[in-house]
Each structure stands twice: as structure tokens, then as C-alpha cells.
Simulated scan of single mutants.
Amino acid sequence: MRGFTAIELMVTVAILAVLASLAAPSFTPVIERWRVRSAVEGLQSTIYYARSEAIKRGGGVVIQKNPNTAQCTTSANQEWDCGWFVCEDVNNDGVCNATEPVLQRFDTPSQVNVTRTSGGATIILNRWGLVDGAWLGFSLVPFNKSTSDLAARGVCMSIGGRLRVIPPQDIPCSASNS
């Protein structure tokens, strides 16, 4: 008869388990970079979408952070960790009310801290697709890490509406890197 004995199979599985447990921690930075990159791309996509909707609708578009839920809680208006959504601000009060149509929603990947550098819980876009109020700056960082972490990124929007993704050493956004 040909084949493996139970002992040979158990030794092979044990060796694979040891190798996998040694390799797993080295994947953590890769996973953190992927999560931050996913959040950065989602934020950029949302801003581009909201800008185009604001131009199309003649203003009246707001990007707002998601409210706290049982799964995600933030304590400050600058913390956008739970994600965000775009709505049509029908009554032009600068916030998304429950009766106003939601145009797009983005839930941030888990284990990513998203902090708005200036401003609060909403971003109002005018009829030209530009931010009405404080300029945009976001820091996206792996959970419990600082902005100096290699996976961290910043998303900056210039006064003219150009978006840039900046590396950790340039966080937070300033007039020179917007």
C-alpha cells in the first residue's frame, strides 16, 4: 500500500502550523496598509462624487460623518471612523436630515482611524463643487497608531478642489501640500 501514515500527516500539519504562526505577524503591516488605502480611496471617491452631484444639482450637497452605532462609536465631530454619507440637502440647513435623500454611503474599514483636520461633522459643497467653509484635510491611520506610522496617509483638498494623498511625514494637511 502507498500513502501517508497518520504520524507523518500530523508532523506535516504541525510544521505548517508553526510556519504559519511565524509568518502571520509579518502580514500585519500589509493588512494595515490595505485597510488605510481602502479608506483613502473611499474618501476620494466620495468627495469626487459629491462634487459632481453639487455641480449637477446647483449646490445643496453635504458629506456627513455616520452617526454612532452599537458597532462604532466616536466621541468628537472630527472623528469620522464610522464612515460617511452624501445627501441632498433639500432644506439647505447644512446637515443631512432623516427625510433627505442619501445619495451614497461609505463604511470605513475596521481598525482605521479617520480624523478630519479642520471642521466638524459635515462638509457642505457649493454649486461649483467646492467646499463651503473650512478646507478639507483628513488623516487616515491604522487603529492605535500615530500619523508617523508607515501605513498612515493624509487626504488634502486645495482651495481649487484638487485632491492629494500625502505620506505620513506631510500629515497634517497644510497650504503647502494641499
Rank of each mutant, 00 (worst) to 15 (best):
A6F: 13
C72Q: 06
Q71D: 15
K56T: 13
L163A: 10
A6Y: 15
A20G: 07
P172Q: 08
V61Q: 04
C72I: 04
P109S: 14
F138K: 01
Q44L: 12
L163W: 08
F27A: 15
L9R: 12
V131F: 06
G154M: 01
P25W: 15
D89R: 02
F27G: 09
R57I: 09
N126F: 06
T74R: 03
L163V: 03
M1E: 11
E53P: 01
G120E: 14
A98Y: 05
R33W: 04
S38D: 14
S26D: 06
I31D: 08
C72L: 06
S21Q: 14
L130T: 07
G160D: 09
F85P: 00
A134I: 14
A24M: 13
D93F: 02
S118L: 14
P142D: 04
G42S: 12
V62E: 02
S176Q: 15
G94K: 05
T117D: 06
V30S: 11
R37D: 11
D170Y: 05
N126L: 06
S110G: 10
D89V: 01
A50G: 06
C96E: 01
M10D: 03
S158R: 07
R164V: 02
I123R: 05
F106S: 00
Y49W: 05
I47D: 05
C96W: 07
P172M: 11
L9W: 10
A151P: 05
K65L: 08
A175L: 14
N126Q: 10
I55R: 01
I15F: 14
G129V: 03
T73L: 02
V114R: 01
R127A: 08
L16E: 04
P67D: 15
